[in-house]
Simulated assay, not measured.
Amino acid sequence: MPELVVLTEQLLAAVPGGTGRYTWELASALAATAPPGWEVRGAVSRHADPSAAVIPGVVGPRILPLPRRALVAAWERGVPLWPGGDAVHAPTPLAPPAARRGLVVTVHDTVPWTHPETLTPRGARWHRAAVGRATRRASAVVVPTAAVAAELSQFSPGPARVHVVGHGTPAVLAAAPDEAIARRVAADLALPDRYVLAVGTIEPRKGLDVLVEAMAGRHAPDLPLVIAGPQGWGGLDLRALAARHHLPPERLRLLGRVSDADLAVVLRRAAVLAVPSLAEGFGLPLLEAMAVGVPVVHSDAPALVEVAGGAGVLARRRDAVSLAGALRTVLDDPERTAVAIAAGRRRAAQFTWQRAAESVWTLHLELYRAVRAGLR
């Protein structure tokens, strides 16, 4: 039985982030849409507890013989440690050296080139090198938007073919949560009745410092700000920033990491979602909010503009006044907002994980047939 191996290492990271969600959702969808006779298996480096990388429908994970740091070093040096399978999909730039079997790597963004200051120096260097190896050596590269494809051709051109494959929305958002469950989640999380919401890891690239400043401004809507996401790198202290900008502490609610089921409730109760990122490769929270009928204000980062497709309200990056004004527009103009919500639902319906998986399968099967033909 031919086997597609998906590297699910990101699920074991301290902060899996958006790439962790992508890894989980894509692997699940690949298993659900596998062609007859194919099996999808996960693979991770050696960990004491790999349970976080267990995905329903996906076999494994297979445990590779090296711990993460040693595996990264081995692959960086070209050690041909193949994770098994007849084809491999790397949902992040952590990938083995190319082999005769098909290797496809997802590159999520070009932030290491466009906004290196939002990463650690070591992280920026590692990602530039890893993406460079992918574009030079992989059989193909998947990117989430045409914006990333264009930037990648500028910063890291290579012989690998680049394919645009968008993301989707998780099944947990497909139906509204039971009302009793929603009330319990809202009470457990101490959610306000109405609020401005942001979703994502708290790190410099997400523009959350600008959002806090915007919400403290005199043109901002008089609502609490709720942020759902774990603390990331960079030491961004949003409570200290709120105090500096005179945003009352009761108007800032930090939820930390929340489950997908709880996020479904948090999203649906929001008055508006703010996505003020300096740079993104796709912007999953934007798509998820549009899918459940929540209006969106987003920055002018090219990928966010592309994904929103005109269904969101635009604000300039790093501009707190522009962001506050955009949020106010959404809340003060219900007729215009209703039109945007309807447009957002239509736009989000164009993106599904099933469609993404089918596109990725088409790519892998084409490569598999080419490899098999070359072996004859």
Rank of each mutant, 00 (worst) to 15 (best):
L287F: 02
H47T: 11
V162R: 14
V266F: 05
A228P: 12
V196F: 10
P97N: 04
V40G: 08
A31H: 06
G293L: 07
P67C: 13
L7M: 08
E3T: 15
E3S: 02
P192I: 10
A13W: 11
L236Q: 15
R137W: 01
T169C: 08
V199H: 04
G325D: 14
R100N: 10
Q10T: 11
V141C: 01
P334E: 07
A303P: 14
G102I: 14
A216E: 13
L152R: 03
L278T: 05
S51H: 06
L94E: 08
R122S: 13
R133N: 06
V58G: 03
V148F: 01
E288H: 03
L252Y: 09
P224T: 09
L71Q: 15
R183V: 14
P83W: 06
E250W: 09
G85M: 13
L12W: 08
T201A: 03
S277W: 09
T352D: 09
P36W: 03
E39R: 13
W233R: 15
G57D: 10
H245G: 03
P224F: 02
A370Y: 05
L278R: 15
R268P: 04
E179M: 00
R253G: 01
Y195C: 04
A289S: 06
P56Y: 06
L304F: 08
L223M: 09
V172F: 00
P285N: 06
V266C: 07
S45M: 07
